Simulated scan of single mutants.
Amino acid sequence: MSQIEARLAELGVTLPDAPAPAANYVPFVTVGDIVHVSGQISQNAGGLIKGRLGDDLSIEQGAEAAKCCAVSLLAQVKKACGGDLSRLVRVVKLTGFVNSTPEFIDQPKVINGASDFLVAALGDAGRHARSAVSAASLPLGVAVEIEGIFEIR
């Protein structure tokens, strides 16, 4: 078990199998020491986390959905590293999409769910550049989708 996985266990998080792509794309592309992970939608063991911020989901529910996206991102990075998560150097950038009403302005608070989780799990290696934007809708009606860029060794 890597040090990262030990920390995840302390946080009560077990990485799931990396989700398979739902269409004609790959879940990640590695270029040199950079892994670009395709957008991961909000889901957990109970299924898809659906809803719209500013309508039927609270900021706290949205942040939890974003955290679930971050867990899936780490699962993809683990797969990209051949199962050895100790190869992860740092999170470089996240781009978060929030299914929200036109009036909703707290997209950053929602994506904080992912950012805060990654810092808790990875320490300073989890700090990253980030964008948090609104979307009129997301695939399958999910609340959040996040893509990420990671440095590996």
Rank of each mutant, 00 (worst) to 15 (best):
V35I: 00
L94N: 15
S131A: 08
P27E: 07
R127W: 12
L85C: 07
R87P: 07
A45T: 10
P16M: 03
T30E: 09
V29M: 09
L74W: 01
S38A: 14
A70R: 04
V91L: 10
A132D: 06
R87L: 08
I34Y: 09
V37W: 05
A132F: 06
A65E: 03
F97S: 09
E103W: 08
A23N: 15
D55G: 11
A132T: 10
R7H: 00
R52T: 14
A20N: 07
A135Y: 05
G123F: 04
C69W: 00
K93M: 14
V144G: 05
D55M: 10
V37G: 02
P102G: 10
S134V: 06
R90F: 01
D84L: 03
R87Y: 08
L122I: 02
L74M: 00
N44K: 07
I59D: 12
A136S: 11
S58V: 06
A23Y: 07
A80V: 05
T95M: 07
G83N: 02
G141R: 05
G32D: 06
R7F: 00
P27T: 07
E151Q: 15
C68R: 15
S137Y: 09
V133H: 10
R130E: 12
A65D: 03
G83E: 02
I4G: 02
K50I: 13
G54N: 04
V89I: 11
R87C: 06
A63C: 03
E60K: 14
T95C: 09
A23M: 12
S86R: 02
G46S: 13
Q3R: 08
K67M: 03
G96I: 05
G83C: 00
L53M: 05
L118K: 06
P19D: 09
G62I: 04
L85V: 07
P139S: 00
K78A: 11
A135S: 10
L140R: 07
V77A: 03
V35F: 02
Q43H: 10
Q107I: 09
I41K: 12
G141Y: 02
G83A: 01
G47F: 01
A135Q: 08
L53A: 01
K67C: 03
N99S: 02
K79E: 15
V144A: 04
K67F: 04
V98M: 05
P27G: 14
L57E: 13
A9R: 05
E151K: 11
V35P: 01
E151A: 12
S100K: 06
Q3K: 15
Q3N: 11
A80F: 03
Y25T: 11
A20S: 12
G141M: 02
R52C: 14
C68E: 15
A125M: 09
S42A: 11
K78C: 06
G32R: 05
V35R: 04
L53Q: 04
G47A: 01
V29F: 08
L122V: 02
L48H: 15
K93R: 10
D124Q: 12
V26N: 14
H128C: 12
S38K: 15
D33I: 11
C81Q: 11
R7G: 00
G83T: 04
E145G: 13
I146V: 05
V29Y: 15
A9Y: 10
D56K: 01
S115R: 15
S137G: 14
L88D: 05
D55T: 13
Q61C: 10
F104H: 02
I146W: 05
S100E: 07
V26Q: 09
E147C: 15
L94C: 11
D56E: 00
